[in-house]
Computed example of a mutant assay.
Amino acid sequence: MRLLAIDASTEACSAALLLGGESIGRYEEPAGGQAERFLALIAEVLAEAGVRAASLDAIVAGIGPGAFTGVRVSVSVAQGLAFGAGLPVVPVSTLEALAWPRVGQGPVLACLDARMAEVYWGCYRADAKRGVVATFAPCVGPIESVRPQGVPPRRGVGRGFSAYPTLGAAAAVEVDARDARALPDALQIASLGALRFAAGEALDPAALAPLYLRDKVALTELERARR
């Protein structure tokens, strides 16, 4: 299986190639020019492996949630690569990618900073076929709204926890310092994408859709004052 995974949904941008049992990855948190660095990282991993996009089986795309512009860039670049190379796409959410390395130890609460005093969050458990499945669908809201239902998650992961330090205790999950700073990485997205590609979840690139969770990207002055 030969897959290219890409993501620019958050402060980080990353690209990874999965070539059989081998992987090549790049990850950066650029201070500026994220779109340019994102494209450069994709070119770097392809050049290092000496492969062309047309020789791959699929593009795995990080689809959000995250920053509005970053999600849009991530999805549009994935579509452009897939259309250009005649490949299908496999969508993976940023919250799924965060949870994936940790669900082997039990259910996980994944959170990312959504700005405006809110977080993107969802709960996930391990699944043999898809890697992870949601036990609480991803949503956005103030930290007071983070109340997992059903089987309670044991661990928390994602930069939402460092943005709002009281969140871990409020949600009754354990969060270590490294996990509290975590952002999604294309290597995680690639491994989840491989499972889903094998399960027949690849899409025509025209069907790839961003996962924004929120339509509004800024507060008015009155709304800020009320908060």
Rank of each mutant, 00 (worst) to 15 (best):
residue 132 V to P: 05
residue 99 A to D: 03
residue 110 A to C: 10
residue 114 A to R: 00
residue 102 R to S: 13
residue 107 P to R: 08
residue 107 P to C: 10
residue 143 I to A: 05
residue 82 A to G: 03
residue 145 S to D: 15
residue 113 D to G: 03
residue 121 W to Q: 02
residue 117 A to H: 06
residue 76 S to A: 15
residue 94 T to P: 03
residue 125 R to N: 06
residue 144 E to Y: 12
residue 145 S to T: 15
residue 127 D to I: 08
residue 93 S to Q: 08
residue 128 A to K: 14
residue 89 V to D: 01
residue 144 E to W: 06
residue 105 Q to Y: 06
residue 132 V to T: 13
residue 72 R to V: 03
residue 122 G to C: 08
residue 88 P to G: 11
residue 72 R to A: 05
residue 143 I to Q: 07
residue 111 C to Q: 00
residue 134 A to L: 12
residue 135 T to S: 15
residue 131 G to L: 07
residue 126 A to M: 10
residue 136 F to Q: 15
residue 108 V to H: 09
residue 117 A to V: 02
residue 73 V to E: 00
residue 82 A to W: 01
residue 110 A to H: 07
residue 134 A to D: 09
residue 137 A to T: 12
residue 133 V to P: 10
residue 80 G to F: 02
residue 71 V to Y: 00
residue 113 D to L: 00
residue 152 P to A: 14
residue 90 V to R: 04
residue 88 P to T: 09
residue 112 L to V: 04
residue 148 P to Q: 10
residue 115 R to T: 00
residue 148 P to F: 06
residue 146 V to M: 13
residue 125 R to W: 05
residue 127 D to W: 11
residue 122 G to F: 10
residue 90 V to K: 05
residue 109 L to H: 07
residue 104 G to K: 11
residue 116 M to E: 00
residue 97 A to P: 13
residue 77 V to G: 02
residue 138 P to G: 06
residue 134 A to Q: 11
residue 148 P to D: 12
residue 89 V to T: 14
residue 73 V to H: 03
residue 116 M to I: 00
residue 98 L to H: 09
residue 138 P to M: 05
residue 98 L to A: 13
residue 136 F to A: 14
residue 96 E to N: 13
residue 132 V to D: 11
residue 117 A to G: 04
residue 121 W to S: 01
residue 109 L to K: 12
residue 146 V to S: 04
residue 108 V to T: 08
residue 98 L to W: 09
residue 101 P to V: 13
residue 105 Q to L: 14
residue 94 T to G: 14
residue 126 A to Q: 12
residue 141 G to K: 04
residue 112 L to R: 02
residue 92 V to R: 04
residue 79 Q to H: 09
residue 130 R to K: 10
residue 100 W to F: 15
residue 95 L to Q: 09
residue 87 L to Y: 02
residue 142 P to F: 12
residue 114 A to L: 02
residue 130 R to T: 15
residue 105 Q to W: 04
residue 126 A to V: 08
residue 126 A to P: 04
residue 95 L to S: 01
residue 74 S to W: 01
residue 136 F to T: 13
residue 82 A to K: 02
residue 116 M to T: 00
residue 108 V to K: 02
residue 141 G to C: 09
residue 147 R to K: 15
residue 103 V to N: 03
residue 150 G to N: 08
residue 116 M to Y: 00
residue 128 A to W: 05
residue 149 Q to K: 14
residue 72 R to Y: 00
residue 81 L to M: 12
residue 95 L to V: 04
residue 81 L to Q: 09
residue 134 A to N: 12
residue 103 V to Y: 06
residue 129 K to P: 01
residue 124 Y to I: 05
residue 139 C to H: 05
residue 142 P to Q: 09
residue 80 G to S: 08
residue 144 E to P: 06
residue 139 C to K: 10
